[in-house]
Write a protein that binds this DNA or RNA. Structure first.
Lengths: 201, 201
DNA sequence: GCCCGGCCGGGACAAATGTCACGGGCCACG
DNA sequence: CGTGGCCCGTGACATTTGTCCCGGCCGGGC
C-alpha cells in the first residue's frame, strides 16, 4: 500500500484528486489538507510515503513546506503539483528536495504514474519545463529587491511599500529601480509581472 | 441518462471531474472541451442536457459562451463552475441565463446534486454569494472605461493603452481617472484590482 | 425642443514615479 | 588588507500619472 498525503487548497480539486487516486488499488490517501501550515504536522501523524503538494497555499507556501518536510521526514518523497509551470518554481522545488514536479494541465493519468516513478527513485519533470528553467538562469534579484517587489503588488504607492518593509521611501525607489533594470522592464508593474512569471517572487 | 458537457481549461481538473461524474450511474459525459470557442459547436453536435462551464477559458469567456448557448440550444441548462466567487460574475451569469453558479471550493459532492437540481428546474446559487452580488450593486463602469481599464493590466503606460484602444492619450487619462474615482481607489492598479475583484472586467 | 449622459479631445497643474550620482556601513572572499 | 557586493540612505532631475478645468459631438428621453 502506497500512503499519500494531498495538499491542495481548492476543495473541489482536492476532493476529485482524492477520489481519483483512491481508485488505484494500491493507493491510500492518509491525509488531505487545505493549508500549507498543516502539511508537516499531518505528515508526522500519518507518515505518508509520498506527499502531493500544491504551491500556492494559504498559510505557508508548498515549496517552504516541502523543504521542511524533507527535513522532518526524509522517507517521504515530495511531488509538487502546481497550476503554473514557472521556471523559478521548478528550480526552488528541486532545491527544496522535491522528487517531481507536475503541472495541472496534462492528463490525470500522469498523476498515478508519477507517484509510482517517484517512489521507485526516479525524478519526474516535464522536459520542456526543465529546459526553460535552465535557460532562464537563476534569480537575479537580491532578497531586499524581492521584498520590495512583493510589497508592490496591487498598486501600493512608494509610501505604502516603505511602511510595509520598514525602509525609507528613497531606498524603496532605489530598489524598485534596480529591480526594474534587472527584469528589463519599464515600470514596477511590469517588473512584478516578469518576476512572478519566472517564479522569482 | 443525463447528458453532460464539460468545459474547463485545466487538463487535470477536467479529467478528474469527468472521471468523477462518469461514476454516477445516470450521468454520461458527451463532450469535454478546453477552450471557450469550442463550447457551442460541440454542444450542437452532442446535444447535452447540462453544460458545466468554467469562466476563465482561452478563446472565449464561459459567460459569453453561456449566453450564446442558451440562444442556440435552449433545452440545455447551464451551470457555471468557477474558481472565483466574484459578485459581478454571478450577476453576469444570471443575465446570461445560467441556472446555477458554483465555486470550486466546496466539496465535490455538491457537483452531482447541483446538476440534478438544475435539471429539475431549480436554481442553485451559494446564498452568501448571492447576498454579496446584491450588495455590490451593478457595474458602474461605462463600456469605454472597461476597455481602458482592461488594457491597463500588467503595467501598460498611457501611450500603450492609447495605441491598443485607438484613442488619444489625453482621453485615456480621463477615462482612467473616472474609473479610479468610481472604484474609490488611488491609482490605476488598485482600480483594475477592484474592478476584477467585483467581476467588472 | 431641451437636457442629460456617454463619447472624444485639449490644457494646465500637483503629485508620484523612475533614474542617476553620491555617500557610508557591513561582511565575505581572495 | 583591499575589493566587491549588498545594505540603507540622500538629493536632484525628467517623465509619467492623476486631477480638474474646458470644449464639442452625438443619441435618447421627458
Amino acid at each position: 500500500m502506497i500512503r499519500l498525503l494531498l495538499a491542495e487548497d481548492q476543495g473541489m480539486m482536492r476532493g476529485a484528486l482524492a477520489l481519483l487516486l483512491g481508485l488505484e488499488p494500491d493507493f491510500e490517501i492518509v491525509a488531505q489538507v487545505g493549508a500549507g501550515d498543516e502539511i508537516v504536522p499531518r505528515a508526522l501523524e500519518t507518515r505518508p510515503d509520498v506527499a502531493l503538494l500544491d504551491i500556492e497555499l494559504p498559510g505557508r507556501s508548498g515549496l517552504d513546506a516541502a523543504a521542511a518536510l524533507r527535513e522532518a521526514l526524509p522517507a517521504c518523497q515530495v511531488l509538487i503539483l502546481t497550476t503554473f509551470g514557472r521556471p523559478g518554481y521548478l528550480r526552488r522545488a528541486m532545491e527544496a528536495g522535491a522528487a517531481g514536479f507536475l503541472v495541472k494541465d496534462g492528463p490525470v493519468e500522469e498523476l498515478a504514474v508519477a507517484v509510482r516513478r517517484v517512489l521507485a527513485g526516479e525524478r519526474v519533470i516535464d522536459p520542456g519545463l526543465a529546459a526553460a528553467a535552465l535557460s532562464a538562469g537563476p534569480n537575479p534579484l537580491t532578497p531586499r529587491e524581492r521584498d520590495v517587489l512583493s510589497a508592490a503588488v496591487d498598486g501600493a504607492t512608494v509610501a505604502d511599500i516603505a511602511a510595509k518593509v520598514h525602509l525609507s521611501p528613497a531606498t524603496v525607489r532605489n530598489y524598485l529601480s534596480s529591480a526594474i533594470g534587472k527584469t528589463q522592464t519599464r515600470n514596477r508593474m511590469e517588473a512584478v509581472r516578469a518576476a512572478r512569471q519566472n517564479g522569482w517572487l
